[in-house]
Write a protein that binds this DNA or RNA. Structure first.
Length: 877
RNA sequence: GCCGCGGUGGCGGAAUGGCAGACGCGUAGGUCUCAAAAACCUAUUUCCGUUAAGGAAGUGUGGGUUCGACUCCCACCCGCGGCACCA
């Protein structure tokens, strides 16, 4: 503990950092006594902290300090998310390597965080680029591979020609550009590691209900997962003289009630039928037409496809299918407004009851058959009518309402084996490989000769053995084996590294330019690539793709719980360590109680992290299914001109500059005060000035205690009462993330207090009460409060270790309150009364109050009295 | 088109059924000063009222519920964010 009087921010910083004041040194006794406060960890760019960082990190810090003083065991960690494109692009541009750039940036970020007085537990600091860290990332990759969630597939992926890398769909903006670099995206056929997030669509969806997250973010995830309930319906192909192997076309629909209105089928250009037609006995002219159409549809993938006003195109395939209920023969069309990967890649065309089908039918003269009519509630002059209604022209189902018709028609189809209830999701598997240098190497090996024998790790005895020891739940083991069956064909030749070979280090190279083929730069490093097959011992190659930068952030909140335990030797038995040591820590510290971050991660980081947790939970690797119990979004900080801060506009505000011009506390209080935390806000120098006045006034006020011998230190009743109210108010605001109103109340009280001091020439509060005020201020202004604590009150140790004040139980019935009195809903007077005064007493007072009685005169009235809140006199004649 | 969030003084915002505009900025006037800055004090929603006392209107628009509505309900307008040929 510091014996020296702290006079400057630098003194405080030294004291805090050297005494490791904010480390979570003990393991929490139980869950109830811990608070895990987490802010989304930063990407340490060369620019340093910006105002957005300042806002969110200060908020997290205020919460952490508050909970610490409330006596909780607080985990408030920080780390660095440093893999990924920006660091690599920056290094390429400056002719250096990311390994040299990243530590510099981290050092700068850390310096800035300490300048801001952020109370992190630095004993748990890591960067996702540390081999020690990505050893675990690779370990988890291997676990996910082994439980059948990763497979490699050659498939068209979004590709950024500028960054020369494949992208996840989530990284593609709706205008068809890359979210990182803004370049137009194309498509390319590349072998990719695919991560089976779709396996958890339902569980990711249903668990959302239990989370205390902003409704908007939950809805974005719901929409992204995109559950829709409906039916699949089989239409038998009428083969005639074509030689088709395919016997039926299966469609997905959410509206089986409109089945009788189906006048055609439409399949996507990617549908198997199309491929087969090109092999079948059909006229060459039709073949040519189909080829032309496919070419056109394919090229469309490469351009911006978001223009929905574009006219629909399609062509008749020459094939007919049999309507499952009417037996009618209906034509099959090919059109690219039906997409291959959703549903069954085929639809039934119901022009009378679907907008797109209607457009298509009108254009190509396909019959329109109305089978649903509006009820009295849903008038529908609209053409087509797309709402639910009453069925007509639907055989035995005519007269039913849509909802029961959906049930009954699907059941009938089920009886005849012509259809069934199904649920579809929009969510697609996650493309998990990047053709770049600066990422975690994927710890997998490919053996050509094993591949030729159609063998992969899942076919080995070791696989079964390991799964059984990893998972001690037989139904989960069965589930995993079933997944293996499904992905088997996509894994031939692939084998995982041994855990003891981790970390598989990223080779340090001088040259890592992008390759023209779209392959990873690692593929050029022969002595890294060439290795032996773990299965047959023969020649094999390493995977040269790396993981996306989401990998490190998908589990970092777990790492903070145990990072102080990590034994930095190579011989750590990873599965054992996880099951024994890690799991125990996770049980004590997870989930994150308060997670603060930007809304832009709604369907990226926040969904990926949930997915990893759900998968790890399934095999008993984590004690909780959900990582983040409570989420609060931070609003963006705009420049003073209400535009986004950007170098090119020259409107960037740098925290370093304003800390220098004012000080860290002023910057902290300002960014917390300026607007509600979740709201977008324009930065304002003027507010900074106001906060500077406020904190200065605090300092001047506390100086009166410096010569305490001369001052009578009795608590003034009124000032003391207000202080008790303030304690309640600030505590309540802090636990509901309302920093701006908490600060406003602190200002309000200070105004009242200094007013009293000036008027009576007394302190109004004794030293203990004054200390309570300082404690309330301390989470917001940690430096000033520490300095006053040390230099004015001559206290050793830190104010930040003190106990949070609790409000006295004052004899509230004695308290005078102000009671507003309205006449006909209009405020006419305010009465000073004691608390819980009786209705009769109030009425007597009102009648003798001139301001009110003049409105009543002799009229009849009714009096509404809400005790301690308001009186309303309603004139009744 | 669908989903979500929002609309309150000159500005940032406060009040989620009970005194609309807390708190802060800005502005005006004042104190201090040779002067300026800083600091401090007073006023500051709009309109009527010379001043004051006092009064009226007022939270995007129009309706409704209520003794009482920024707050709840219905319909609409505007702004922002997300998704989108998802069957």
């Amino acid at each position: 503990m510091s014996d020296k009087v702290l006079k400057t921010e630098n003194d405080c910083k030294d004291f805090w950092y050297k005494s490791r004041l904010y480390d979570l040194k003990i393991e929490p006794k139980n869950k109830k006594n811990k608070r895990y406060v987490l802010v989304m960890f930063p990407y340490p760019s060369g620019e340093g902290l910006h105002m957005g960082h300042t806002r969110i990190y200060t908020a997290g810090d205020v919460l952490a300090r508050y909970f610490r003083m409330k006596g909780f065991d607080v985990l408030n960690p920080i780390g660095w998310d440093a893999f990924g494109l920006p660091a690599e692009n920056y290094a390429l541009k400056n002719k250096t390597i990311p390994q040299k750039v990243v530590p510099k940036n981290i050092a700068n970020f850390k310096r800035q965080m300490l300048d801001l007085g952020l109370s992190y537990d630095w004993s748990r600091e890591f960067s996702t680029t540390d081999p020690e860290y990505y050893r675990f990332t690779q370990f988890l990759f291997l676990i996910f591979f082994k439980i059948g969630l990763l497979y490699k597939k050659n498939q068209p992926v979004y590709f950024c020609p500028y960054c020369k890398t494949g992208l996840a769909e989530e990284e593609v903006l709706s205008n068809g550009t890359h979210e990182r670099c803004g370049e137009k995206i194309t498509r390319k056929l590349l072998p990719q590691w695919m991560f089976k997030i779709t396996e958890y669509a339902e569980s990711l969806l249903s668990e959302l209900d239990n989370l205390d997250w902003p409704e908007g973010i939950k809805d974005m995830q719901r929409n992204w997962i995109g559950r829709s309930d409906g039916a699949e319906i089989r239409f038998k192909i009428e083969k005639k003289d074509l030689n088709l192997r395919l016997s039926e076309i299966v469609v997905f629909t959410t509206r089986p009630d409109t089945l009788f209105g189906a006048t055609a089928l439409v399949v996507a250009p990617e549908h198997p039928l199309v491929e087969e037609l090109l092999q079948a006995d059909i006229p060459d002219s039709l073949k040519q037409k189909i080829l032309d159409y496919m070419k056109q549809a394919n090229s469309k993938l490469d351009i911006n496809r978001t223009d929905l006003n574009e006219e629909k195109t399609g062509l008749f395939s020459g094939v007919y299918a049999k309507h499952p209920l009417t037996g009618e023969s209906i034509p099959v069309w090919i059109a690219d407004y039906v997409i291959g990967w959703y549903g069954r890649g085929a639809i039934m065309l119901v022009p009378a009851h679907d907008d797109r089908d209607y457009q298509f039918a009108v254009k190509y003269n396909i019959p329109i058959k109305k089978v649903v009519i509006p009820t009295s509630k849903t008038q529908g002059s609209a053409e087509p009518y797309t709402d639910y209604g009453i069925l007509q022209n639907s055989g035995e189902f005519s007269g039913l309402d849509s909802k029961s018709a959906i049930e009954k028609i699907t059941k009938k189809l089920e009886e005849q084996n012509l259809g069934t209830f199904v649920t579809e999701y929009k969510l697609r598997d996650w493309i998990f490989s990047r053709q770049r240098y600066w990422g975690e190497p994927i710890p997998m090996v490919y053996c050509q000769s094993c591949a030729e024998q159609k063998i992969s790790w899942i076919d080995t005895d070791a696989a079964i053995k390991e799964i059984n020891s990893l998972v001690n739940n037989s139904s989960t083991v069965e589930k995993i084996k079933n997944r293996w069956k499904k992905i088997k064909q996509h894994l031939y030749g692939w084998f995982p590294l041994d855990y003891s070979d981790l970390p598989l280090k990223l080779p340090t190279v001088e040259f890592y330019e992008l390759t023209e083929t779209g392959e990873s730069p690692l593929s050029n490093i022969d002595d890294w690539v060439n290795t032996h097959c773990p299965n047959c011992g023969g020649y094999a190659k390493r995977e040269t793709d790396t993981m996306p930068n989401w990998a490190g952030s998908s589990w970092y909140f777990l790492a903070f719980c145990f990072w102080d335990l990590v034994n930095k030797t190579k011989n750590l038995d990873l599965p054992q360590f996880w099951k024994n040591n890690v799991f125990d820590r996770l049980k004590k510290l997870m989930p994150v109680d308060w997670y603060l971050g930007g809304a832009e991660h709604a369907v990226l980081h926040l969904l990926y992290s949930r997915f990893w947790m759900h998968a790890l939970y399934e095999i008993g690797f984590v004690p909780e299914k959900e990582p983040f119990y409570r989420l609060k979004n931070v609003g963006m900080v705009l420049a003073e001109d209400h535009k986004k801060m950007s170098k090119s506009r020259g409107n960037v505000v740098n925290p370093d500059d304003i800390i220098k011009e004012y000080n860290a506390d002023i910057v902290r209080v300002c960014i917390m005060f300026i607007a509600p935390f979740s709201q977008e806000v324009a930065w304002s120098k003027n507010v900074l000035r106001g906060i500077s006045r406020f904190l200065n006034k605090v300092y001047q006020t506390f100086k009166i205690y410096d010569n305490s011998a001369r001052i009578v230190e009795n608590n003034d009743e009124e000032v003391y009462l207000e202080l008790q109210r303030l304690i309640v108010k600030v505590s309540k605001d802090l636990s509901s993330v309302k920093f701006n109103t908490a600060i406003a109340s602190l200002m309000e009280f200070l105004n009242l207090w200094t007013g009293y001091i000036n008027q009576h020439n007394k302190t109004g509060l004794n030293r203990d009460a004054a200390k309570d005020y300082l404690k309330l201020l301390s989470p917001f202004a940690p430096f000033l409060s520490e300095i006053i604590w040390s230099s004015v009150f001559r206290k050793k140790g830190s104010i930040h270790n003190q106990q949070w004040p609790s409000a006295d139980k004052i004899n509230l019935s004695e308290v005078k309150i102000e009671l507003p009195v309205q006449v006909n809903g209009k405020l006419r007077s305010v009465l000073k009364v004691t608390k819980d005064v009786s209705k009769e007493d109030i009425e007597r007072k009102i009648l003798s109050d001139k301001k009110i009685s003049k409105y009543i005169k002799d009229q009849k009235y009714k009096m509404i009295y809400i005790p301690n809140k308001i009186v309303n006199i309603v004139l009744t004649n």
